[in-house]
Design a protein around this nucleic acid. Structure first.
Lengths: 169, 169, 169, 169
DNA sequence: GATGAATGAGATTTCATTCAT
DNA sequence: GATGAATGAAATCTCATTCAT
């Protein structure tokens, strides 16, 4: 809490004027800042640009957002997904909602025959956590390279896989 | 530590007979048990069954091992990869070695033309962390389904992607 | 630490706001209060009143200070000289500096022919630890008697010894 | 206790077959080994060689004994004199007895006019603790020099003091 | 008797939370 | 509202002591 207050440039006690406790703070901070990311992802889901563009939009939004808000990523990761599931048995409702929405996107694409049949929830988790794995390493400075390439790696792999001779339509 | 001791049915102080401190305990527990997983993954890397079978072997080994050692996964995840990178700036050497080896496998496959050109380290991270995402949810009880299907989801996606009309050779 | 906190009328945790750890606390407490004693001893060394008066001044300062700060003596003795040498292999730098200064005083007096030739460091240690031995017993209540007599005992013995017929100038 | 057991070449538990608890062990160990020193000091007190030789004998016995039993000195110092007075309010009965005997020696010498009048208990404490101060530093390796010189420093100072022109009878 | 693994009370230290200013 | 010194519950760690083998 001291560390958070320091970075925020306010006093430790002041935090408790705005947040009930630490958990509330973590959730709220992530929540409020993340609204920008959520808005962007919302837009991705709503615009009717087809599966590939939608995925590209979502993944690019994540890379871009956390590139500029690396402090938040730590909190987000702690409170939202895998990090939280080590304490509680579920992930954050908002995060779950995002996963569900992504799974829904996959499910519809499977129904339309755009994607082959598979477990849509699993695919959503796989893509999102895999993406987070790459983001963590970027934040730690262990990866350079353009965001564009990272996005292409994720979306290209999910859609077309890595097998040669199948990569371009 | 008290909690760990309680679960182990021994006294708090007893833990310190076997481990220097908390960090040592976490690392050691994971390390010793994980040797079985490492051995299995070693075997996967060494047998010459082709890229697809090797990947399948690795991923299946991970799912199977953590299915039976779910307690370890928490520790492992904390000490090895993403979890650790939130405290330190690098991941565990053994984990990094695994990532490197996997990246090497990808790199050679790319050189041979089996896989299309991409960033092999990024691909390794993506696959491993994505897999862990699924494992966490299985452990939490949020996912049922056969291990075979989970493996197929991961390996199939990595190799062939999800786009319809490209899934079988 | 609990005991110290209790006596100070504050909470255990509060101690750690002011001191890094237990050792720091012990050293600091002794250090800060001891500045008064150090100042007095400094004065003794600096005023040019001759060997005998200087020694009398130093020894009197020690008796007087620890008479009024008996709590400190315990800490001081633990952290500074003999007490510390049972843990570490040296005594506290400040204490060593005091011993050196005293030895220097003796050395110069020997050079001038005021004192007979002997090992000045040994003499300094002997006088200081001997003095501390008496102080401990005063603090414990095992000795009454005027401070003046105690000082006379120490300084008189060091300078003129106890042999009869040699005691007065 | 582990350390003590190791040095003794027996198991920790075995210590408790012979000693009730740690304090008992420290006291007993010191006691039994110290019997040799006590015997020597007894001899010093009993032989009728005059004050100076008696003191020389006592001090030499202490230097010699602790030179060869430096491990004991730590215990002895903790359990007997100044060290103990930081916990309890008195020193060890045996140590007190030694101090009393030494003070008695001084008192008789004062009565006979061999020593000038002073506080015999204080003188005993001063001499013994001063001697211990030098011994500690020898054990720590901070002092070299012959035992003979150390003895001479102590006894010479006590009897004749350091003032020039008074040193030899 | 001897052992040393196990114990647990107690010591040190941390840190989320409170509250007087 | 804002502050940060103070708190104390809980965490980590130590070590004298016990007891099954």
């Amino acid at each position: 809490m001291q560390q958070i207050a320091d970075e925020a440039g306010i006093a430790k006690g002041t935090l408790y004027l705005y947040f009930k406790d630490k958990e509330d703070l973590l959730a709220s901070v992530a929540d409020s800042e993340l609204d920008k990311l959520r808005a962007e992802i919302d837009r991705a889901f709503l615009e009717e640009t087809g599966l590939e563009e939608t995925l590209r939009h979502i993944v690019a939004a994540q890379f871009t957002f956390f590139e500029e808000h690396s402090e938040i990523f730590r909190v987000y990761h702690e409170v939202a997904g895998v990090g939280r599931m080590k304490h509680k048995r579920d992930c954050h409702p908002r995060f779950q909602a995002f996963l569900d929405r992504l799974a829904g996107l996959f499910r519809r694409a499977m129904a339309k025959g755009e994607l082959r049949k598979a477990n849509p929830e699993g695919l959503a988790i796989f893509m999102v956590e895999g993406t987070f794995g790459i983001i963590v390493r970027r934040i730690a400075g262990a990866r350079k390279g353009s965001l564009k390439d990272e996005v292409e790696l994720v979306v290209g792999t999910i859609l077309r896989g890595m097998q040669a001779g199948r990569s371009r339509r």
